[in-house]
Nucleic acid binder design. Structure first.
Lengths: 147, 147
DNA sequence: TATACAAGTTGAAGTAACTTGAGGTTCAAG
DNA sequence: CTTGAACCTCAAGTTACTTCAACTTGTATA
C-alpha cells in the first residue's frame, strides 16, 4: 500500500509522531487512510499540510490561528489579505517580544558582568547581585535594569 | 493588625492575588500570618521576596530556577557564583531565542511585504503566499525564509 | 444599625500545546 | 519463527498559571 507511515511523515516534517496524532485528534489534520493493520498512511498532500502547520507554529502562530490560516488555504475564494492581516498583527507582537528580549539580554549580561567583577572572591555574604534582585534599592545603576 | 492584605501586596508587586496564593501553595512563598478573620497579612520582607520572584520570572527563569535562586538568597554562605552560572546559562538561551526571533521577524515582514506587493488585488486563487507556506517549492527567495 | 458590595477564603477544574507512559498489536528482518 | 522496532489507543503528566463556584469577611454609607 502506498504512502508514508507516521514515522516517515514525522521524519520528513520534523514533527514528533505523537504530535501528528495530536493534531489529528484536534482536527488540525484530517484522519488519514488506514492500512490493513490499522496503521496510518499519509500522502504527499499530508506532507504539505503538516509542513504548513509546522511552519506556522514555528512562526509563533497559535493552533487556533493556524486553523484559520489552514481554512484560508482550503478556501481560496477568500482573500489572502486575511492571512496578511493575521501575519501583520503577529509581526507587531513579535517586535514587542523582541524589544523585551533585548532589554532582558542586556540586563542579564550586566548581571553576569557585575558578578564577575565583584563576586570573584567566591562564597560569602557580600554578594550585591541577589540584594539587587530583591529590590531593596533601585536596581538600574549597579546591576540589572528593571523590565 | 499590621501588614498588607493580599490585594495590596498584589498591587505593589504587580502580581495577581491568585498567583500569590499559588506561589504559597507550591512553597515558593512562605505561609504568611493570618488575621483574625483568616485573611493573609504580609510584611515588607514578603514584598521583597515576591518582587525578587517576579523579577526572576520576568527574566524568564523557570519556577524551579527561581527556587534555586531563592535558596541562594536565603543561604548566603553559598556562593553567589551559583547565581552567576545560572544567569550565564540563561543568557546563552536568551541569545539563541533572540536570534530565532530576529529571523522570524524578518520572515514575517517579508511575508507581509510580498502580500502587499502581489496580492493587492484582493480575493482570488492567485495568492502565492499560502502556497509558499505549504512548502510546495522552496520558500526563501520569494517569500519567507525557513526558520 | 442595617445593608450592600468589595475583597478575602478554599478547592477544583480549565488552559495551551504538547509529552510521556502503560499496555497491547503489527511489521520487517534475519 | 522469533525478535525488536514501530505502531496502536487512551489516560495522565507537564508548566505556570487563571478561572470558577460557593462561601465568609471587611468596610463604607444611609
Amino acid at each position: 500500500m502506498a504512502g508514508h507511515k507516521i514515522g516517515a511523515l514525522a521524519k520528513r516534517t520534523g514533527t514528533n509522531a505523537a504530535t501528528i496524532r495530536y493534531y489529528e485528534g484536534i482536527g488540525l489534520l484530517p484522519r488519514p487512510d488506514r492500512q490493513d493493520g490499522n496503521q496510518r498512511r499519509y500522502g504527499e498532500d499530508d506532507v504539505g499540510r503538516l509542513t504548513f502547520i509546522r511552519r506556522c507554529r514555528d512562526f509563533g502562530f497559535s493552533i487556533e490561528q493556524v486553523r484559520t490560516l489552514s481554512s484560508l488555504v482550503q478556501d481560496r475564494s477568500r482573500s489572502c489579505l486575511e492571512a496578511r492581516d493575521l501575519a501583520q498583527g503577529h509581526l507587531v507582537a513579535i517586535r514587542a517580544k523582541l524589544r523585551e528580549l533585548k532589554a532582558l539580554e542586556k540586563s542579564i549580561a550586566q548581571f553576569v558582568e557585575v558578578c564577575d567583577a565583584e563576586c570573584v572572591g567566591g562564597p560569602g555574604p557580600d554578594c550585591v547581585i541577589l540584594d539587587d534582585l530583591s529590590g531593596a534599592r533601585p536596581i538600574a545603576t549597579s546591576c540589572c535594569a528593571a523590565a
